[in-house]
Amino acid sequence: MPLRLPDRLPAIDILKRENIFVMDDTRAHSQDIRPLKIVILNLMPLKITTETDLIRLLSNTPLQLDINFMKLKSHTPKNTPIEHMMMFYRDFYSMKDEKFDGMIITGAPVETLDYEDVSYWDEITTIFDWARTHVTSTLYICWAAQAGLYYNYGIKKFPLKKKMFGIFPQRTLEGQLPIFRGFDDVFMMPHSRHSEIHREDVIACKELQLIADSEESGASIVMARNGREFYITGHMEYAPNTLDKEYRRDAGIRDDVELPKNYYKNDNPDDKPVVSWRAHANLFYNNWVNYYVYQETPYDITKIG
Rank of each mutant, 00 (worst) to 15 (best):
L9V: 13
I203H: 00
L210Y: 01
P298N: 08
D256K: 04
K16V: 04
L58A: 06
W277T: 12
T297L: 07
F100N: 07
A144I: 04
P62F: 14
E51C: 10
S74H: 01
A131T: 15
L3V: 00
T126C: 10
H280T: 15
G166M: 06
E174C: 15
L113K: 15
D66C: 00
L283K: 14
L210A: 07
R132D: 10
T61S: 15
K206N: 13
L283N: 12
E116S: 06
W277H: 09
C205G: 00
L177P: 04
V118M: 10
M1I: 09
R90H: 07
M103D: 01
R8N: 12
D25E: 13
T136F: 11
F230K: 10
T302L: 06
R27Q: 09
P10R: 00
L41A: 11
C142R: 07
A224I: 03
H75N: 04
E123D: 03
S137D: 04
K16I: 02
L36M: 11
S220Q: 14
A279S: 07
E116N: 06
E215Y: 12
D101W: 00
L5I: 03
I124R: 07
H235K: 03
M86G: 10
R56E: 12
D53M: 13
S192W: 08
L57Y: 01
P81W: 03
T233F: 08
E111M: 02
L41T: 13
S119E: 15
I167Q: 02
H235V: 09
I20N: 00
R278S: 12
G227H: 09
S214D: 08
Q170H: 05
R4C: 13
L46P: 00
H280I: 06
S30K: 15
Y231P: 00
S214I: 06
E116C: 04
K245L: 11
L149G: 00
N42T: 12
N79I: 00
V22F: 11
Y151P: 00
L210N: 01
Q170C: 12
H194F: 10
